[in-house]
Design a protein around this nucleic acid. Structure first.
Length: 274
DNA sequence: CTAGCTTCCTGATAGC
DNA sequence: TGCTATCAGGAAGCTA
């Protein structure tokens, strides 16, 4: 599932391939993925618009247009966004195709169809519920031990659950939440109110560090990205705990455990994480 | 405020 | 081989 580092990778790869090109035609193969407005109005409003910039906020991607509107996209679990030559065979779960003035196609592929698009005018953008309540970006200098403990320090929620809360910090998903907690030596089930000042400081440092590490290890060329059809943008071999339950901890050799926290599988080292 | 559940969806995998 | 059951999960919406 794409989290902030993967979404950032998509942005970096695709921005040069869509920036300053016009969307000449839109083909909606599965109207379900158009969340706002209707598929018809979506196509009508987008046709002829030029993409001026591509940005990211949390796990959302935004295509800024020259028409005072923004195309917002969330990949959720299995969404993929790729730019391909027109002649490329269409993947099975291709739901939207944007024909660009470059002659290429921007395609949205999503096996589980959890993701989707919102086309918002400036007014709607400002009040868009999905983005309005997002917390700080991991790289925001305001993300300090003070911010973290002020926002979460009194909560009885598990720290793992809190890290996944997009209103707390934007962009952390299940994989990197586990990695951040392993890095800081904090047990995922610890209540936020039991987290010490020193540990909040550690978290404030680990959150941007692990996110940057994710971006760095995910780095791919446009060719590699296209070869994987927008999937091969993550280097999982380097993950320390996620998906490794039952295997020895890379730090101490103890067997990694898996528990459910807030309905999500959580891997951790019982020896390294207190 | 919070915990806990359900919903959306398909593919991979396990068990028989 | 082929069936069914289970699981994976981001985020919203709901109840208690």
């Amino acid at each position: 599932m794409p989290e902030l580092p993967e979404v950032e990778t998509v942005r970096r790869v695709l921005q040069p391939q869509i920036q300053n090109y016009k969307i000449e035609e839109i083909i909606v193969l599965c109207p379900d993925v158009i969340k706002h407005p209707s598929a018809e109005a979506f196509c009508r409003a987008l046709r002829g618009a030029t993409v001026t910039e591509m940005t990211r906020r949390g796990k959302f991607l935004r295509l800024h247009l020259d028409s005072n509107a923004t195309l917002v996209l969330h990949l959720r679990m299995t969404g993929q966004l790729v730019v391909t030559p027109e002649s490329f065979p269409r993947e099975k779960h291709t739901h939207v195709v944007f024909k660009l003035s470059s002659g290429q196609e921007l395609r949205y592929i999503d096996v589980r169809r959890f993701g989707g698009f919102w086309l918002l005018d400036d007014e709607e953008s400002a009040s868009f519920p999905g983005m309005k309540k997002l917390g700080l970006e991991p790289f925001d200098p305001l993300l300090t031990a003070e911010y973290l403990s002020a926002r979460a320090g009194k909560s009885r929620r598990a720290i793992k659950d809190m890290l996944l809360d997009q209103a707390f910090i934007a962009g952390i998903g299940n994989i990197y939440a586990d990695e951040i907690l392993f890095y800081t030596g904090i047990h995922p089930q610890r209540m936020c109110r039991e987290i010490s000042r020193q540990e909040w400081t550690l978290l404030a440092e680990a959150i941007p560090y692990i996110m940057q590490w994710g971006i760095d290890t995910n780095s791919v060329t446009a060719e590699e990205y296209l070869r994987g059809m927008g999937k091969e943008y993550r280097n999982t071999p380097d993950l320390r705990v996620y998906g490794r339950a039952g295997n020895p901890c890379s730090n101490c050799g103890a067997l990694l455990l898996k528990v459910r926290i807030g309905g999500r599988g959580s891997c951790y080292c019982p020896a390294c994480q207190k």
